[in-house]
C-alpha cells in the first residue's frame, strides 16, 4: 500500500481548471519531484492534499485512509508536514517557539496544564524544548534558538520553516520550492540538509522546485505539470529527454 495515494483529483477555481485528473502514489522513503512552469498548478496540488482547499473531484488516501476534505491541522497531525513557497513564519515569535508549536498536537497537558503550571506541563514543555533543540541542531541553527525569527537571514528562515515542519513528525514532507530566492551557498546547504533529513528521519519527501539541478539531483521520480495536467512522469533521465517537457518547460531554461 502506498503511503500517499491521490487519484483522479480535479480542482476548479470558479471557471479556472487549476488541476485536472491528477494522480500520485508515494511510497515510504521516496523523494519525488513536481516541476512545471509558473501557474501550472503545483502549489494548488500541495494545498489540495494538505487540506487548505477541498478538491472538486477525486480521492486522497494517507496510509489507506481518506483525508479528503479534512481540516489542515488534522491532516498535518496525521503525518503530512509542509513548508510554503513564500515564507510563512510568525513574525513576533522566537525560533525555538516556532519549532515547539509544530508539536502542538502532540501536547497532552490540555487546558488545565496551560492555565496552571502543573508538573505534567513543565515536563512536557521541557521535553518539547529538547526535541525542538535537536531539530534546530539538525538544520544547523542551534545558536539562534532565542532570536526573533525576523532577525535571521533569509536562508536561515527557510531552515526554521523546515525544522518547524519536521517537528510535526511527518511521514511525508511537502517542500514548496525550498530553495527559492536562495544564493548558491545557501542552496548547497539546503540540499545537504534535505538529504540529511531524509536519511535521519526516514521520511518521504515530495518537493516542488524550479531549479533543475535540485530536482534532478534529489528526486527518484519526477512529474511535470502543465496547465494543471501531468504531461510527463519518470526518472530524472526520462524527464530530461522528454520532448513534451522540453517543449513546455525546459526549453525556456538554458542551463539544465
Amino acid at each position: 500500500m502506498p503511503l500517499l495515494e491521490v487519484s483522479n483529483m480535479t480542482h476548479f477555481f470558479g471557471g479556472l481548471r487549476a488541476v485536472h485528473a491528477y494522480n500520485l502514489e508515494i511510497e515510504p522513503g521516496q523523494i519525488r519531484g513536481l516541476i512545471g512552469p509558473n501557474g501550472a498548478g503545483k502549489t494548488t496540488i500541495f494545498n489540495l492534499i494538505t487540506g487548505i482547499y477541498d478538491p472538486t473531484e477525486g480521492e486522497i488516501l494517507l496510509e489507506g485512509k481518506t483525508i479528503k476534505g479534512r481540516e489542515p491541522n488534522k491532516i498535518a497531525s496525521r503525518g503530512l508536514g509542509r513548508t510554503f513557497q513564500t515564507l510563512r513564519l510568525w513574525r513576533h515569535m522566537s525560533v525555538i517557539d516556532h519549532i515547539k508549536l509544530g508539536r502542538y498536537s502532540k501536547l497532552d497537558y490540555g487546558l488545565p496544564g496551560a492555565f496552571f503550571s502543573t508538573p505534567r506541563r513543565l515536563r512536557e514543555e521541557e521535553k518539547t524544548t529538547k526535541i525542538a533543540m535537536d531539530l534546530l541542531e539538525l538544520v544547523g541553527l542551534p545558536e539562534t534558538a532565542d532570536q526573533l525569527v525576523t532577525n535571521l537571514p533569509y536562508g536561515a528562515q527557510r531552515r526554521v520553516e523546515l525544522a518547524r515542519a519536521l517537528a510535526t513528525e511527518p511521514k511525508i514532507l511537502f517542500l514548496d520550492e525550498p530553495t527559492a530566492g536562495m544564493n548558491p551557498e545557501e542552496l548547497i546547504d539546503m540540499m545537504k540538509i534535505i538529504r540529511e533529513v531524509h536519511q535521519e528521519l526516514d521520511l518521504a519527501i515530495f518537493l516542488i522546485e524550479h531549479r533543475m539541478k535540485v530536482v534532478m539531483d534529489l528526486c527518484e521520480l519526477i512529474q511535470t505539470l502543465d496547465f494543471g495536467e501531468v504531461i510527463a512522469e519518470g526518472t530524472p533521465d526520462d524527464i530530461r529527454n522528454d520532448p513534451k517537457v522540453i517543449d513546455a518547460y525546459l526549453g525556456k531554461e538554458v542551463s539544465v
Partner: peptide, 26 residues
C-alpha cells in the same frame, strides 16, 4: 501561564499566520 505555554503561543501563531498555524497541527 497560559500565554507562555506552547498552547498559548498558538494564539500568536493564529494572529501572525493562520494558514501556517493549521499546517503545523494547530
Amino acid at each position: 501561564n497560559f500565554v507562555r505555554s506552547t498552547m498559548g503561543k498558538a494564539l500568536n501563531a493564529v494572529r501572525d499566520g493562520e494558514l501556517a498555524a493549521s499546517a503545523m497541527t494547530v
